[in-house]
Design a protein around this nucleic acid. Structure first.
Length: 243
DNA sequence: CCCCAGGCACAGC
DNA sequence: GCTGTGCATGGG
């Protein structure tokens, strides 16, 4: 829940318990490593936390002959990918650029109403100035408008492959390669995406002696393929914890 | 005062 | 195509 994926920004944490609403009043809770979904939301919860992933198999595959990945798997056992709503994820990672996680949390929290995160229509109409979103505010507003007025369809992205989906998402203002990859991975569940941010760049340089966004992408695709997103999440946590 | 944070748009080669 | 720069805001 604190791994920097969408739920880090869209779930409330009180003490050791994590909460969120799904479909208005209903709540899903998570604590002590257990997930409780109220009636009718079990399926949604399974989807959110990707409970059908065979983590042992995936981790065994990506850590084969790789000491770095082996240590990361051992250190972060239980770390899994999540699959959140694509609009929610788009908002989170539009805000995330050139920003730090605690401030992203504050801003995204302010973008929530009674029913959850503001819809594109609500973003268009809201006074966002108190949230101090900075230069990203016009990105968010223009993206919301494109989607609300049907100039852009997030649904269509789910039918595209990684490269086409990436290219399509980058038509949105404020969405570049990194943000697009986060949306594709955490919002559409395409696990071959490998979002490359400052932490991943550090990790790739330190552990694999690879530099440059293009080379990093090629390396990840070749080495981890469909499981690149899992490897990315492990490396992100590792790099952020021990810089 | 400085640098940095889950980068991007834009200009200038 | 690649490289440099400005950008709102807050924290260290």
């Amino acid at each position: 829940m604190d791994s920097g994926q969408t739920p880090t920004f869209t779930w409330k944490k009180i003490g050791e318990k994590h909460y969120r609403k799904i479909g208005g009043k209903q709540e899903v809770k998570l604590w002590g490593g257990k997930l409780f979904a109220s009636g009718g939301f079990e399926k949604k919860a399974r989807e959110l936390f990707r409970l059908d992933d065979d983590l042992h198999k995936i981790y065994a595959t990506i850590s084969q002959g790789d000491d770095i990945m082996q240590s990361a798997v051992a250190e972060y056992s239980g770390l899994r990918l999540t699959k959140s709503d694509s609009w929610e994820t788009t908002v989170c990672f539009l805000i995330s650029q050139n920003n730090n996680i605690s401030r992203i949390k504050k801003i995204v929290s302010g973008l929530h109403g009674e029913k959850g995160i503001f819809s594109p229509q609500e973003i268009m109409e809201a006074d966002l100035s108190p949230l101090k979103i900075g230069y990203r505010e016009p990105y968010l507003r223009e993206t919301a408008q494109l989607i609300a007025e049907n100039g852009f369809s997030l649904e269509k992205i789910s039918k595209l492959g990684l490269d086409d989906g990436r290219e399509a998402l980058m038509e949105l203002p404020g969405v570049g390669p990194k943000v697009a990859d986060c949306i594709i991975l955490y919002g559409f569940g395409k696990t071959n995406a490998f979002p490359t941010d400052v932490w991943i760049k550090k990790a790739m340089r330190k552990y694999y002696a690879i530099e440059g966004e293009k080379k990093i992408q090629e390396f990840a695709e070749e080495k981890w393929g469909e499981n690149a997103g899992f490897a990315q999440q492990l490396l992100f946590c590792k790099a952020r914890k021990e810089p």
